[in-house]
Every structure is written in C-alpha cells, then in structure tokens.
Design a protein around this nucleic acid. Sequence first.
DNA 1: CTGTTAGCGCATTCAG
DNA 2: CTGAATGCGCTAACAG
Lengths: 344, 344
Amino acid sequence: MRATIADIAKEAGVSKATVSRVLNERVEGVGPETRLRVKAVMDRLDFEPCGVARGLATGKSLSVGLVVPDIADPFFPLLIRGIEDALRSEGYGLFLCDSGLDIAKEKDHVRMLLEKRVDGVILNSTLSDCDCQLDLLERRSLPYVLLDRPIEARPSAAGVYTDNRGGARMAAEFLLGGGARRLLFVNGPAGLSVSKSRRAGVEDACRGRGLSPSALLHGEGDYSVESGERAVEALLGPPGATRGAFRLPFDAIFAANDRMAIGAMRSLRRRGIGVPESVEVVGFDDVEAAHLVEPPLTTIAQGAFAMGRESALLLLRLIAGARPRKRTIVIEPSLVIRGTTRPR
Amino acid sequence: MRATIADIAKEAGVSKATVSRVLNERVEGVGPETRLRVKAVMDRLDFEPCGVARGLATGKSLSVGLVVPDIADPFFPLLIRGIEDALRSEGYGLFLCDSGLDIAKEKDHVRMLLEKRVDGVILNSTLSDCDCQLDLLERRSLPYVLLDRPIEARPSAAGVYTDNRGGARMAAEFLLGGGARRLLFVNGPAGLSVSKSRRAGVEDACRGRGLSPSALLHGEGDYSVESGERAVEALLGPPGATRGAFRLPFDAIFAANDRMAIGAMRSLRRRGIGVPESVEVVGFDDVEAAHLVEPPLTTIAQGAFAMGRESALLLLRLIAGARPRKRTIVIEPSLVIRGTTRPR
DNA sequence: CTGTTAGCGCATTCAG
DNA sequence: CTGAATGCGCTAACAG
C-alpha cells in the first residue's frame, strides 16, 4: 500500500503536522535533525505525496487547462512547448482539450475543466463572437487568458496575441523594399479580426512607401491551398491563357498563410512563371511545409513558443492573485527569408 | 461561494448522503420525488461537483496522462484526437507531457503524473531500451499502455503499434508491382526496432516477387530532409556529375519517412531527374507537407487516429480492472497514392 | 520547535 | 427510502 503522511509520522515518531511541514519545505517550525529523520523515513517508505488530497486541503490543483480549436494547427507544437516550459518549473500539469472547431464542445471542455478544479484556463477560442465559455469561467471566478484570438465581448480580458498588423507590414515592406510595384495581397476571410489587422499592416507599408493603398491588388481565401490557387487564377485566367510577353498584373504576392502562398506558387508554376524571378512570394505562419516546398518559402513566423510561454506566465500571475497592469501581451512575429524572394 | 452537497442537502431538507446518491445517479436508494427536488435545488444553486473531493473519496481522478517524446511530430494531432475521442465520453481528462526527446524529463513527467494521481498513462517513450519510467509506474501498480514504440525490457506490456513491416511491404510491393527493378530503400537509423521491421517488410516484398533482397540498394538517414538528400547523393555523386545517357543505379525510392523522401526528391530535381517518370518515390507518415510538395508525395499513412483511440480504450479497460487477452494492438497503415508514382 | 484539532467536499458503510 | 457517522490524505490554525 502507498504510504501516507500518517505512516511517516508514526514511523518517525512525530505528528502529521510535522511531516506536512517538512513535506512543504517550511523553513520555520521544524528542527534540523527532526527534519532529517522525517526525510529519511520518507524515502525509506518510498513516500509520494497525494496531489488530490493536497488539492482538497489547499483549494488548488496545480493544474491548468488549455483549450484549442484545432490541434492540427501547425503552430501548436511550439506553443505547447512554451506553455509547458513555464508550467513545469512550478509543478503545474496541463490538461489538453481540442474542441475541433465546435463551440459547443468547447463549452463542454470548459465545464469539464471546471469540475476538475483546474486553477486556470488558457483559451484559444473557436469563435471570437461568443462568450458563453467565459461566462462559466467568470461565474466561478476562475482566472483565464485568451490566446491568439480576442473575444469581442471582452475587450479587456487578459490575452496574448500575435502582432498581425506588424507582421503583415513587415512582409509588405520587404516586398516593396525589394522593388515590387504591384503587390497582390491574398487575405484570409474578411470579417475575421485578424484579417482586418493584416490588411491594415499591408496598407501601412504602402503608405510608408508613398504608395496609395488603392494600388494594391486584393484576393481572399479560406486559408486552404486551393483558395490560394484560385486567388491567382482569378487574376490570370485559366492556365494556358498566359503566354510569352504577357504582362503580369502583379510582381509580388503576400498571402495571409503559408498554405495559400503554396497554392499561389502552384498556380504560378503551372503557367511557367518563375518564383522568385518574375514574382516574389511571402507567406505567414512558417509551417513545416514552408521549407520543404521548392523553392522554400519566405514567410512570417509567429512567435509560437513565446506566445505559449507568455500566456502561461500571465495565467500563473493571475492565479497567484496579481492584477497586472499589462493584461494584454503582443508577440512580435519575425521575417524568415528563404527562396521565394530575391536576395536583397 | 461555490455550493457543496452540504448546501444542497440543507436547502433541500435532506442529508448529504441523499444528495450524493442523486449526484451519482444511483437508481436505488432515493425516492423519485426526493430526487427531483434535490435536482431542482442543484441547478438553482448552480451546483458543480468537486472532482478533487470525489477523487479523494473514490481513489480515482478521472484523468490519464499522455507522455510523448516530441510533440512536433506530425502524427500527433490525429493521435490526440483519437485519444480524446475515447476519453471524453467517459469523462476523463488528458494530461499532456512533452519530454522533448529527453529520457530524464520523461521520467520526471511520469513522476508528476503519479503525484497528480492519474488513473493511467499512455506512454510514447523516447527510448526503447530504458524502463526506468515503467519501474515507477509498476511500483504504484498504475496501468499503462505503450504507444508506437515497444520497450525491450517489457515484451509483454500492453501496447499499440503500427504495422511497420506490413506498411513497408505495401510500399515496396507497389513500387515493384509498377515495374521498378532497382529499388533504393532509405531506412531510418539502424538499431531502432522500427527500422528492422520496415526492412523486413521491404525484403518480404522482394521475395514475394521472386527477387533476391540482395538486389536492394540501401541508404540510411536520421529522418531529416538533409539525410534524404545525402542518401541519394551518395549514389549519384555531386549534382552536375550526372548527365544525359547516364544510367541511374535505381528507378524507385522508398524512404522510411516523408521528410527523407522529400529530401530525395530535392536531390533528384537538382539533377534534372524526373519524378515519377524516371524515378518513383514513396514516403512514410503522410505529413501535411506530403501533399504540398510538387509532385505531391505518394506515401504510407499511419492510422494515427485509430492508434490514439485504441490506446485510450485499452487503457480504460486496464483501469477498469480488466485483464484483456489481447494486450497488443497492431494498427494497419494504408497506401496513399499521389503524384510521385506513375498511374498503375 | 512540535503536537492537537479541525476541516476541505464527497462517497460509503451501517442503521433505522 | 433515508440519515448519521466515518474516512480519503493533507493543510492550517491554534496551543503548548
């Protein structure tokens, strides 16, 4: 049978309270030799404290929940590593929940986490216009931090986000600075707040160069490879139509994610249009495939590890009862230069 | 303050025992109207049972741990979905631990899971020749199931594995059946049990076609893109050396993972060797990048979702105290035909 | 410095 | 059908 502090106490000839004190490394309250004796008994009996009992007694479970919309999202691995990195050092465990893009499931997961008495939740929500999960959390006054997507009804909630505007600006500036004159911007679904931010970033870059944003070519996709292909085809017509001295309507493409960028590249290749000689391409995300395609894709990398780490640290502070002034953290993305842009 | 069963009891004019009975849906022991009354009070007071207290009282935490060597491994997303799929319906939560290919960290994580009193562990170990984590688990007699990699010292442990031999045979047969006569097999690190199985599968296929396995060309890599490139270069020499009527030493390549297959394709492209016209290529894993490269990669897909699901179901049965006769489950992979092989 | 006494919230006998 | 009592393993005052 597993040893309990009662066993240790009896065996060491002290009270449970004393055992508890050495267990919790209380500096005051236990004499040095008693401490040593208790410790000796502990590992002689192979004692292992029971987290559940501790949780009941202290009201904290030393675990937090992470809810994500789609675990297949390629920016996850690093994100989770960042979170674990911050959590483990404090002894916290991480409950993982994948809501599969289903808001009802998301709510169920939050409910489960609540029952499991996690100390806090990191929430990467499926929908930015629904706050039903937050109601649950707030009703129990459980700390939470939003990840990647703000929730409209909670403008002042704690959260960690990518600087989408800055990232988009960086990409556009790089393209424009490299000599591009007619930029095609393939954005994600209009309506998403991310899309708005990225568009703003691209327009920033235009103005910065003295160009009118109206000179931009716009495309829209749903983040799939196919939608990236379509965006290019919408401007060039079917393959075969483009020949020889045909003048391209654009000389650079910035896509809101790597998949669409890869789709665009595919369309260009079919038409024999050289990348990066005739058209430069920049993506967003830096998924694994970005460096596997030919030529490897220049892209904007989100600081996934940093986002994970910062969100966990922020949550930990909230759990500790702090009311930080900076409840919103913005992570700067970075430009990863590879082969779909010409050397500068 | 959160309501407890004591509050419910007082409010409903019954005892805590009765509340507990309706909470656990005990059919016997509570009159129908009492039950209704208690339930009414429960949701009037927005009652939410405390998992921690339940855990202490029952000895089960309704949570399991998953330990993986590298969460960036692309076969994870589906695996986790499979696990969650099986777990959620039973109300179980999932603790995720990434050991980052570090066996010491892996052991620490197991230790943490033990303290958190999870009811069982799914272990995808970093090393197949170390059983120190298992010692910990067995000492507490905590149920566990091995995933993807057997551990040598525990040949009869419960586990769920891919049929690597079958998958490799399938790939080789497809290539040979399509007319390939000189097959280059780029395997993973020799020594890994997976590598041995896959090699056996490829040799099976040769014999099946009446070919001597000695006719095979062998390469070895470490699963990286670069190692795939090198494997090809080792046979062809530096780019530029291969010209015109040069006779290729192989007409088909089977790589032990997609990354190496993609590396091999890259080497071939540099030399102007057409895929699939001159050389056919098949990979293993079916990562996202497989269908993003040009041409899209024909590959062997592991049944990740099934593996996750089956491992969780098996663990659940072990937790329930069952001693199933089939403690080892083998999942069949499947061939995904795309563009790096010629139409049959 | 150490021991005693109460709970934490719930499940589970055992009576009635 | 229902209630009172006891304990799960540990922490946290409060005494000495």
